[in-house]
């Protein structure tokens, strides 16, 4: 046995076995199982095959379409806010104009919210976006002479609260990704550009942006998934899964409502499968468009 395990043929498979087993047990099996469940009507102790009925019902379900719309809106706005701004902040932090302790304090202050639990962050923001004129956000807009707003009751204002929470939690993390990307760009490129007489803007566009492409693609990929799979933030902000007129309902929120609250596991699995297909389709499209799958020689 020992001889077999130590042989050149078997050893690589032995090394990757823990990953393969974990992947199969915790990822592949649940994925296949939820695919099967999405074609079933599931009652306690009874599973009936119903074909694509769950999917047919899903696409004519008005609430599901609202959830999809909310998730897409959230994803698009988070992409707009969580990619360019952290990239600019990373460039500011990486610049030689600001040095020393101040830079470190700024980095730390931006990263601290990422260490805060979503539950805590959601609760804080719910209280900050309260209805009374004494709540922080109403006090803030009061400085500009505006009337108090019932933030979490309106679709647009509730969405502002969700986006503020997302920015607060993720700006620091994304800034760190971009900062690590910036620090891996060789200084020689900038020196060569300076000798050629390039301006700061030209260096940014011709060197920084292309060199940050792998980081950009990574942040884009996780942001697309994060945006479409958002649930905890909305759940905590609205103190449950029942926002007024479903303004905070997301795809995962709808999955939770059907699967856990209404105990319709088959239908909830269909929601999960649709979410997986949407996320895969968008991410594969953007990865192909950004040339991630191309071989080094083809680029």
């Amino acid at each position: 046995m020992k001889k077999f395990l130590y042989s050149r043929k078997a050893a690589p498979y032995v090394f990757i076995l823990p990953f393969v087993v974990t992947f199969a047990v915790f990822w592949l099996v649940p994925l296949i199982k939820s695919g099967i469940m999405s074609t079933q009507k599931i009652l306690p102790g009874q599973e009936t095959f119903i074909g694509i009925d769950n999917f047919t019902r899903l696409f004519s379900d008005r609430i599901f379409l609202i959830a999809v719309g909310n998730s897409f809106k959230y994803m698009i706005f988070t992409l707009i806010l969580l990619i360019p701004i952290p990239m600019i902040l990373a460039c500011l932090v990486n610049s030689k104009l600001v040095r020393g302790r101040f830079k470190n304090i700024f980095k730390a202050s931006l990263f601290i919210p990422a260490l805060t639990s979503v539950v805590v962050a959601g609760t804080i923001f719910r209280l900050m976006f309260g209805e009374m004129d004494t709540a922080l956000m109403n006090q803030f807009i009061g400085l500009f002479g505006m009337e108090p707003v019932k933030w979490l009751k309106g679709a647009a204002t509730g969405f502002v609260a969700l986006l503020t929470l997302a920015c607060w939690r993720w700006w620091g993390v994304n800034m760190m990704y971009f900062l690590s990307g910036l620090q891996s760009i060789p200084e020689d490129y900038y020196e060569a550009a300076s000798i050629d007489g390039a301006t700061t803007w030209q260096k940014f566009i011709k060197i920084t942006v292309p060199q940050l492409k792998p980081t950009f693609v990574y942040v884009l990929t996780i942001s697309i998934y994060g945006g479409l799979a958002m649930f905890n933030e909305s759940y905590m902000l609205y103190q449950g899964n029942n926002s007024p007129n479903n303004i905070g309902l997301t795809i995962v929120g709808y999955l939770y409502r059907q699967g856990i609250e209404k105990n319709d596991m088959g239908y909830a699995s269909a929601v999960g499968v649709v979410l997986l297909v949407i996320v895969l389709a968008i991410n594969i499209t953007q990865l192909v468009a950004t040339g991630t799958f191309k071989k080094e020689d083809d680029k």
Binding site: M128, A135, N138
Partner: peptide, 9 residues
């Protein structure tokens, strides 16, 4: 009081 008046500074 926090729930009624919200968080402020």
């Amino acid at each position: 009081m926090l729930v009624r008046y919200g968080l402020n500074l």
